Simulated assay, not measured.
Amino acid sequence: MSVGTRRARVEDVHELALGMPHVTVEHGKGENPVYQVGGKSFVFFRTPRPDAVDPDTGERYPDVIVFWVPSESDKLALVQDESSPFFTTPHFNGHRSVLLRASRIGELTLRELTEIVQDAWLSQASRKRGKDWLDAHPDPAE
């Protein structure tokens, strides 16, 4: 199995986020990591909240990761696909982000997770930083 096609892990989120340029890490109320670029969050690990709960038990999900996305259409593409592990809640209506339970991260390949983290960073980085990064990392598919 190649590196890009292996199943993603939670550790990969941390490594990928920290691997992007100009990243700082803040910590939330529960000491959960919040990855930022230019003072703007692009990936963060949420503390349990009342808007993301197990439908069977009513228990709050303890393992939600938030990823910013470039646009509302990108968000819809991720959350409307029934096979996707990404979801949203009414709390995030109008917010350019998607949620993912850490317990479902293995449904993604490392390549897919890499794209999600890079897109999250690009959606929050300044135009100059984004352009500089894209110029240094041309899309191999093109």
Rank of each mutant, 00 (worst) to 15 (best):
L113V: 01
H22I: 01
Y61N: 02
T5M: 13
V117F: 08
R7M: 05
D12M: 02
S41D: 06
H137N: 15
L110P: 00
D81G: 01
K131G: 01
V23W: 01
L113R: 00
L76G: 04
R9Q: 12
D81V: 00
P70V: 09
T47F: 02
P21W: 10
L18H: 05
G19D: 12
T109F: 11
M1Q: 03
V69K: 12
V117A: 09
V64S: 12
P33Y: 07
A125V: 08
L113E: 08
G39H: 08
G28N: 06
S84Q: 06
L110R: 15
A125G: 05
F44Y: 15
F42Q: 09
P90C: 12
S2R: 03
R111A: 14
G38T: 08
G130T: 04
R127F: 05
G38F: 09
P138C: 09
K29F: 15
V66M: 14
N32K: 10
P48V: 02
P33L: 11
T88D: 12
D139E: 13
V13N: 00
L134A: 13
Y35T: 01
R60W: 12
S71P: 08
A141P: 01
V117E: 10
S71H: 12
T88E: 09
A77F: 04
T24R: 11
P90K: 11
F42E: 12
L122F: 08
A52R: 06
T114S: 13
H14T: 14
V25W: 04
R60M: 14
A120D: 09
D54L: 07
V64R: 02
I105H: 00
D56Y: 02
M20V: 05
T114R: 15
A17K: 02
K131A: 12
V79S: 07
L113H: 02
E59G: 01
F45L: 10
D51A: 13
D132N: 10
S103G: 09
G130R: 13
I105V: 03
E11S: 14
G106S: 11
E15L: 15
M1T: 05
D56I: 05
A8Y: 00
R104I: 00
N93K: 13
L16W: 03
L110K: 15
K29S: 10
A52C: 13
R101M: 03
D135G: 01
